[in-house]
Write a protein that binds this DNA or RNA. Structure first.
Lengths: 173, 173
DNA sequence: GCTAAATAGTCGCAATTGCAACTATCTAGA
DNA sequence: TCTAGATAGTTGCAATTGCGACTATTTAGC
């Protein structure tokens, strides 16, 4: 008789000495994040040739109305600055993003989307939102709110949500 | 004036044409999974020199009472078989896992933990459970149940939860 | 029984990405 | 002003891991 992957508590050992991977939240989050990423990648990768870091750069620039530095994007998306650097290089090569020197601080560049980048962004956003809603459609509106709230609490307790004050301290604005 | 990372709806554009990365569930799941993994890795990586695939192999063997094949572990943890193969090789080199040929099917091996592997597993489990509880301690008991239930619903709708019947079909038992 | 397709496991290759060193620049303090 | 330390961004290197080809073996259909 085949055993199911997710079974009841295995017999023969006292509670606490075993761990059911399928009920272990860190494992579930990893697996779920990988699956959701994979489900969305068809939108930005296959259709527009973007990878995740590139999409994060566009998403950050698109949501803000003004230009910002690569470092800002690295901080607020929690992506390593070298990864963002490579993404920006690729986006500039495709003329989706442009950058101008900052007169006040010549170490950094101000990044902004080109018209071409904005056009791509405008076509991509509705598709991604639709996909997200499809994924969450198994939850009721109330469950979705609760889920988002729980995510927010965990993010907050892990220090993932940076406050305005924090942003100022780290210079990430 | 510094802008917070997570701000209100940006003005000047109609709703739907923008996307706030910080409210976008796929991004949040990715970021949270990475952070939680990183928080747990100190337990199994720094303390015991295990990486995630190796930990998944031990977790699967430890939860079941009987031996199983590498392919079973690959299927049920949704990890590529080559990744599991490398993890098993490393675990055998450290004598944490052993394998025996299957008389009935000489393509596959039966994997089981050694005494040394079981001892490591028994020391590791309580630490990981404690870490998980710390991470979830920002939620009430009810919120934790709701969160787990929501995860389950999403997993189910994405086909991540394999039933006993499915396990039989894929031979993953 | 023979052949084709399927499956378990291994391994080389390549893509991704974090780390750390590096350059250029800015800031603070003596 | 000069120097030490901090910061923005780039790049080489290495670790991780998915993909696909490969071998060995099993199963199914003829």
């Amino acid at each position: 008789m085949p055993k199911a992957f997710s079974s009841k508590v295995a017999p023969g050992l006292r509670q606490g000495s075993k761990l059911d991977l399928f009920r272990f939240v860190p494992f579930r989050l990893n697996r779920l994040a990988a699956e959701v990423s994979s489900a969305l990648s068809s939108e930005y990768r296959e259709r527009y040739g973007l990878d995740i870091p590139e999409w994060r750069v566009l998403a950050t620039l698109g949501f803000r109305n003004d230009a910002c530095s690569a470092q800002y994007i690295a901080h607020c998306t929690r992506t390593h600055k070298s990864t963002i650097s490579r993404a920006v290089t690729a986006l500039m090569a495709r003329q989706l993003v442009e950058r101008v020197e900052n007169e006040d601080d010549r170490r950094e560049f101000q990044l902004r989307m080109t018209r071409k980048g904005q056009a791509l962004y405008q076509k991509l956003i509705p598709r991604l939102k639709r996909r997200e809603q499809e994924i969450l459609s198994c939850l009721t509106a109330q469950q979705r709110r609760d889920f988002a709230r729980a995510l927010g609490k965990i993010e907050h307790s892990l220090g993932l949500v940076q406050t305005s004050k924090e942003a100022k301290r780290t210079g990430a604005y």
